[in-house]
Design a protein around this nucleic acid. Structure first.
Length: 230
DNA sequence: TACTGATCATTC
DNA sequence: GAATGATCAGTA
């Protein structure tokens, strides 16, 4: 079902306004939010996997662009929904961004898209218990997070380990098992999708597009730390 | 049941 | 095809 918002929301003027809007989501159901925007709620997410994320973007007034930038670039804030299982814990990994498959000698963690996107994340917890109809799922309390020094150190180590294999043309050695917090997995319409990578000799070769994801164990840690500080 | 690899929708 | 938004589903 195409997402066709009837109501367009003005972008927030400040990060404070963004946070205030996000706070207003707490306790609402997806039906309520969709109703306010005048959009229908899909019966299931199988063919609308990004629907909740898009709904949140529209409600909060994100620029709705598909640029490789944080959602609210002016404030450096990236928006992410956090699907919670019936146990109240995150149940899915979190997509971060595409993996650059062509070697870039200038590539460094400090100016990587992963670091820029994770600099500040506005997490929006949303019930994701399949026993609850999509429309009836409730939204939790949004919270702003930035990696602490220990977390950034590990993210950086993961990124460097993974990117080294890629820049060496060893994409075949990259599996989702590598990385403590960050992992690389396919990110494509299907397993036949192709982009361009390089082999160990530096030759261009057709490759399955990949994405960086945050492991569930890491987002569970982030949520737990937030609860600890609340 | 957790995890990895596969897949779905939209836009430009 | 590549960027965004993610969840699905088979199997270890």
């Amino acid at each position: 079902m195409p997402f066709d918002p009837v109501t367009r929301v003005r972008p927030p003027a400040s990060s404070e306004e963004l946070l205030a809007r996000a706070a207003g989501l707490a306790g609402k159901t997806l039906r309520q939010v969709a109703g306010e925007l005048g959009v229908p709620v899909p019966g299931h997410l199988r063919q609308a996997k990004g629907w909740i994320g898009t709904l949140m973007e529209n409600y909060l007034g994100a620029n709705a662009g598909s640029l490789p930038e944080p959602d609210f670039a002016e404030f450096g804030v990236e928006l992410k929904t956090l699907p919670l299982g019936k146990n109240g814990l995150p149940k899915e990994s979190t997509y971060v961004c595409q993996v650059p498959l062509l070697p870039d000698p200038a590539a460094a963690w400090e100016n990587s898209l992963v670091k820029r996107k994770l600099f500040r994340v506005l997490w929006i917890p949303v019930e994701a218990d399949p026993a609850i109809a999509v429309a009836g799922r409730r939204i939790g309390s949004a919270f702003l997070w930035s990696p602490d020094r220990r977390q950034e150190k590990i993210l950086r180590r993961d990124w460097e380990e993974l990117m080294e294999k890629i820049s060496l043309g060893n994409l075949d050695q990259v599996s989702a098992r590598i990385g403590q917090y960050l992992q690389i997995r396919p990110k494509a319409m299907d397993a036949r999708s192709l982009t361009t990578g390089t082999d160990a000799e530096g030759h261009l070769v057709p490759s399955l597009p990949r994405g960086f994801y945050l492991r569930v164990s890491f987002t569970r840690q982030i949520l737990a730390a937030h609860h600890g500080n609340t």
